[in-house]
Design a protein around this nucleic acid. Structure first.
Lengths: 226, 226, 226, 226
DNA sequence: AATGAATGAGCTTTCATTCAT
DNA sequence: GATGAATGAAAGCTCATTCAT
């Protein structure tokens, strides 16, 4: 009902295709993030958007089409953040802000949750995976190369390629762990308010994330200290 | 049908209430973890258990009752791990093992995922939250007190209580971030195989997790290096 | 899209009411014959005609109105055949041609099928019945009076009227059986290609139809030979 | 509502699986014959059977499954007629009876109409075609070989095969025309009561059908008398 | 203790139709 | 005269649940 306000707000024409489309998309996005695919019903989405259910077909073809559109729109949010800054520390601050209590009030939750919702459709699963991998890749890039244990890599010239590949894989793994940390935070906040994490703001989170990201992205993988 | 075999195995009575109950619970647990709440149908659970659907009502009252029972059973798995070892390093190894590629073959996924599965019920939300918070608390305990920057806390004797409280909260926060990391890993592996994370084994994960856990649990939250 | 071409062909006005009407009617006719009432959607008809769906209402009021119009147009095809020739033999040839494999390529099927398409409406039922009865009547007329067993009818002068009526009824019945044969052929060819009937051409059909029509239209109803 | 009477009639148990199945099948059969596939709704079928819609799924899987079951049941009616008698004359009588006014009161229409209802499913189309072809084949068999123009076939010994094949094809064609006549009669009576055909009884129909069937099945295809 | 029969509510999807430009 | 936006009703199907044996 609040969303109905959205569409009727302003003096815009009552029959505005793109406004309607947008209203549906927004409502769907929010519900998909919060409720997941199954629990999101088209009727509710349409109601929230203040329009008729049949328009979902008109504009998105089907529920799955709607989901894909919402997923694409979601990527924009993840990307639109202006790119991640270089260095673990500044990255940590960005993440601390993004994942802290009051971020993303328009969705109710961090958009990364959109990427965790029900596949069972191969295409969707692919979209999701690549979005997450891309997310990780951008983190890896902005982090710069981790300080690798140089003594290890200097074995032989002709194994340089293999070493490089292993190196790249490790960097990917590291950045994916960072993503995992973010996803986990989002989930824990969403999976009903684990305290004090849920209410933590950037101030509390930033120092901890800074440590963690330095460790994950910059520290050489330590040898067996056991 | 193999599940039916399970129940019929041995010379036990055909009508064994607790065996039936258990069969249902096991089947439900596995499906809830893998498919989530909505995609799990009672008929499939009953089939896998080799019994009639109506027995779900008899033993668990409803689908939600079955879910709650499965959730409780799940806690046993999380607890049964024999308690976490002390120290970030050993903890890291345990986590690396628990969250690596071939762990938990009997469920298909890490049981922590069970805590993220849907039903929008207030009671459940509470169960979920406390399970996760308890999980974090146990990590906090096994980690021991982080090395706090003592110069900071030594402001005044009468603020000792407040300082202690803040300290406890920070420790909770730290351990919850560790949980977040674990949950995120589980989700990323489950939410369609992000590579290379999905296939990573304890060997690759352990060193990275060790760094991260040290940072999260033992390092003092650093000051603003910016 | 090719249908659109049809409508846009020539230098005629873009907004030509009767052209639009005709385009809709043609598209509808073809689809109704081939797909029946239910499977024909107005959107498809409009698309094939290259115009907007709403125009169906403008010109025909409703789907049923469109169907009625198509039914009327259809009668023209049935009539336009220039009247049936006199005599069972020539009639048989006409029918053989009309109902053989490649006739009516523009519709895909014999227009008589149009008379069997659904809508459960009383008015339509009437239209349909009278069209079919008229069709039969024309056959009856062109066939001429069957050779009735004269000795039978000559019982008494005052029963002449009754006899005539009975006679007329029998002639109707006979011609309706001829129509039934035609309808049946159309249906069997349309109701998924019964072979060899579906592929039979006038050459194979004509002799058989000739025999049948002679029997139905000209032979005296034989007495009980049992 | 009358059908509800059917299921509740007698002292049989209220929960009788096969009775329910049968009730659904009967209701469906009747509606499919009269209304066709599209106009038959599962809700109406279930209502007429006095049971819940979901049972259609339980017993027949889907609407199409229900249709196929009805089609199969229908074949039994077509076959159960005890086989067609030999000879055009007796066959004519059987057909006259089967296709006359009051036959098949339990369905409202001749079961052959079941074979004309909406395909668009390849499997169904096949079932239908083979049922119709089988129907025709049985007529052909019971009719015996038509009197073929012997002078025509005696051309050469080695063309005997080809001649036989042509002969068989012609016999099929002839019997299919008989089926066409029957189908046409059913359709004309169903397509809203063409008079006097609709009200005709076996008495009026038999003599005419006898002539027609003799002509179609026994007479040699005459040469060109034009 | 266990089963199969039966129900009702809800979902997505499809269409004919109507409204406003 | 013509269009695209929007609606409402109904269909097939699925599922948790309840009833009667």
């Amino acid at each position: 009902m609040d969303a109905k306000t959205v569409r009727d707000a302003g003096a815009g024409p009552r029959r505005d295709a793109s406004a309607t489309r947008e209203a549906l998309l927004t409502a769907a996005h929010s519900r998909f993030i919060r409720l997941g695919y199954e629990r999101t019903t088209l009727r509710d989405v349409a109601n929230e958007a203040g329009v008729n259910v049949a328009l979902v077909k008109r504009y998105f073809g089907s529920k799955e089409g709607l989901f894909k559109a919402a997923l694409t729109a979601n990527d924009r949010f993840l990307d639109a953040d202006g790119g991640f800054p270089a260095g673990a520390d500044r990255l940590a601050e960005v993440l601390a802000r993004q994942f802290s209590a009051d971020a993303w009030p328009e969705f109710g939750e961090h958009p990364v949750l959109m990427l965790l919702r029900d596949p069972h459709d191969t295409v969707l699963a692919g979209m999701r995976r690549s979005a997450l991998e891309a997310f990780a890749r951008r983190i890896a890039e902005s982090a710069g190369p981790p300080a690798t244990d140089t003594s290890d890599t200097a074995d032989a010239p002709d194994t340089a390629d293999a070493a490089d590949a292993a190196d790249a894989a490790e960097r990917q793994l590291r950045s994916q762990l960072v993503v995992a940390l973010g996803v986990g935070m989002a989930v824990l906040r969403s999976a009903v308010a684990v305290q004090p994490l849920s209410d933590a703001g950037p101030r509390e989170l930033a120092p901890l994330l800074r440590s963690a990201l330095r460790a994950l992205l910059e520290e050489p993988g330590d040898g067996d200290r056991t």
